[in-house]
Simulated scan of single mutants.
Amino acid sequence: MISVRDLRKEFRGTKAVDRVSFDVAAGRITGFLGPNGAGKTTTLRMLLGLIRPTAGTARLWGHAYAELPEPTRRVGVGLDGEAFVGGRTGRGHLLCYAPAAGCGPERVERLLAEAGLEGAGDRPVFGYSTGMKQRLSLATALLGDPELLILDEPSNGLDPEGMLWLRQFLRAFAASGRTVLVSSHLLGEMEQTVDDVLLMHHGRLLCAEPLGSLLETGESLESAFMRLTQAENGARV
């Protein structure tokens, strides 16, 4: 479904993404994980055609994102949980984007309910908490009822109840045969959510494998990340 090969991006001589290659399988939740500044967002933006790579390719179903017919029906994207017009209501925001996604007011109402925002749909977004904005961003990504969700740090600002809600939603989405690529720096939370792991550090991909294969006996995902970064640092010495 997603194929990235030898992807590289330099900004004024600085390597933000350095020879990254991976695949994302259908029907699974893949965690694109690592600390802030690891190159995750830059990689996602290249995958979606928002940044031109220095080298390499990033494909969805074998095509560049810009080549996909009706992309909002195939890919739901949430890259910025703050990308709203503050004075617009939550319902108004979704209604603004609904025509591009080929859906009507009925789906907007359904998504407000699914995101837990039915009581806040008529409130201006500037009064939303960070967690409510994250829920609205996810609802926007779902407007076209896509096959694939690509989410960048969707758990930022969520309280424990919101974290649980997001985890359950993503599991149900994948259980329906659809696919999630989700980036996060919260390794402990993602350990409870993802099937497959892509670990990034300093622009390089440390590993790409199922969560169960990555973790050694009794090991947490955070411990595995430390083990791999130490091995990488040792290899560079």
Rank of each mutant, 00 (worst) to 15 (best):
A25W: 07
H202P: 00
G39I: 14
C207F: 11
G121S: 07
M200D: 06
L221P: 01
G116I: 12
G203W: 13
D196I: 10
A101Q: 04
T140F: 00
V77N: 10
L111Y: 03
G218A: 11
Q192W: 08
D159Y: 09
V75W: 01
V182G: 02
L151H: 04
A174C: 12
A172L: 09
L136H: 04
G218M: 13
M226D: 11
R73K: 14
H201D: 12
A64C: 06
L60C: 04
G27H: 04
T217E: 15
R123S: 05
R88K: 12
F11Y: 15
R19S: 09
R91V: 11
K9A: 05
P154T: 09
T130R: 15
G162C: 08
G90L: 12
R227E: 13
E82G: 02
L205M: 11
T54I: 11
R8Q: 11
R178Q: 11
C103N: 03
R45K: 15
S213L: 13
T41P: 01
R167Q: 12
R5A: 13
Y97P: 00
G177E: 14
E189S: 09
A83F: 10
C103R: 09
E222D: 13
L44W: 00
V24T: 08
Q230F: 05
Y128T: 05
R74D: 03
A231S: 13
G203S: 02
R59K: 07
Y65S: 04
A101D: 01
Q192K: 15
A141V: 09
S183P: 03
L166Q: 02
T140A: 10
L148K: 01
F173H: 07
Q168I: 03
G81A: 15
A115W: 01
A58F: 02
A208D: 06
T130K: 14
A38K: 09
P99I: 11
S3A: 14
R52G: 00
G81Q: 09
G81S: 10
A175S: 14
L211W: 08
E153R: 07
F32M: 10
A113M: 03
G90E: 07
A139Q: 06
G177W: 13
Y97F: 15
G121C: 08
A55V: 12
L199T: 00
D6I: 01
F225M: 02
A208Y: 05
C207H: 04
D145R: 06
K15Y: 03
R5C: 08
A231K: 15
R59C: 06
